[in-house]
Simulated assay, not measured.
Amino acid sequence: MYTLENEGKLGRIFLAAMLGNAAVSLVKILGGLLSGSTALLADGSDSILNVASSGIAYHYYKRSRKPPDEKHPYGHVRFEVYGSILILLLMAATFSFVGFMAVDRLAHGEPELVDKIGIAFAVVSILLNALVSSLLRVHGRGSQIALAESRHVSLDVAEGVTTLAGVTLGSLFSAYYDLAATIIILGMVSYFIYETLQDLRSQIIDTSPPSEVLDAIREEAMRIHGVKGVHALRARVVGERIYADLHLEVDPHLSVEEAHRLCDELEKSIERRFEGRVDLTIHVEPAPSHG
């Protein structure tokens, strides 16, 4: 549940993540410039991007947790999806530029060996990335965008290991190893973008919850004395909530007051079972006659 306390806590987490990513990016960019490593520069570009994406993530997290209002009667949860898409667009733009840098370096013949000082910078950056990722993963539970940001920074750890290998081999044997590490990093980022888009797709196109959820709603309805049947049950997942609607069949001779009582009973039953995560809309209709 969104509270000012949670907002303040996550705000401090994202601020710490931004400061951590700023430190990481400084280490990587400086290491790339001093050692001549394209892989470190590529990794550093991603860390600079992390600073911006942490700010975007927190901004849209706050907006998504606002309660429903007249203009947004179903809440603001999809602002998280919008923020996640902005982060992906930034990533795509940044790494298109990094890819151009790698191709340009290849076009000018075999580059010089990478300076061994880059190895130290790569090791330090891995440790800093691991710390930032752990911070977001542990303290950002319950937020889709915080989890996405944690996965993004976790990717940086894998990128850092690849960078370390590329810088080490590039300083000992050939700078082509460093360029190969750059290409691998670009591949990792591309896969991350694809996976995140797959996750966001379910939020954008109103995916149905697991069949067990629908079965549980139907089961709760049929437990209520006076309910003759349930049909046209459907539901969609929006963020952490589920919006469901159904047709409730009752005795044709039941009064409006009695039918309303059955609906109230079902709503309370669903609220208890799903801990308030299901928003249920009920349409009452007379049960079909079998005589």
Results as ranks from 00 to 15, higher is better:
G8R: 12
L15S: 06
A17I: 10
L34C: 03
G36D: 03
L40Q: 08
L41A: 07
D46L: 04
H59C: 12
Y60G: 09
R63A: 09
P67S: 05
H72K: 08
P73I: 12
Y74D: 03
H76Q: 07
R78V: 03
V81S: 12
G83H: 00
I87Y: 01
A92W: 02
T94S: 10
F100H: 12
M101L: 11
V103Q: 04
D104V: 07
R105C: 06
H108T: 15
I119W: 04
F121T: 06
S125K: 07
S125V: 07
L128W: 04
A130T: 15
A130D: 13
L131K: 09
L131S: 12
L131G: 09
V132K: 05
V132G: 05
L135S: 05
R137C: 00
R137N: 03
S143N: 10
A146Q: 01
E149G: 04
R151V: 09
V153E: 02
S154T: 10
L155P: 01
L155E: 07
D156F: 00
G160A: 03
T163L: 00
L164V: 05
L164W: 07
G166C: 04
V167H: 04
T168H: 04
L169C: 11
G187D: 01
Y191R: 15
R201Y: 13
S208T: 12
D215I: 00
V230P: 02
V230S: 02
L233R: 13
V237D: 06
I242T: 10
Y243S: 00
H247C: 08
V256S: 13
R261Y: 12
R261S: 11
L262F: 06
D279F: 15
I282T: 09
V284P: 10
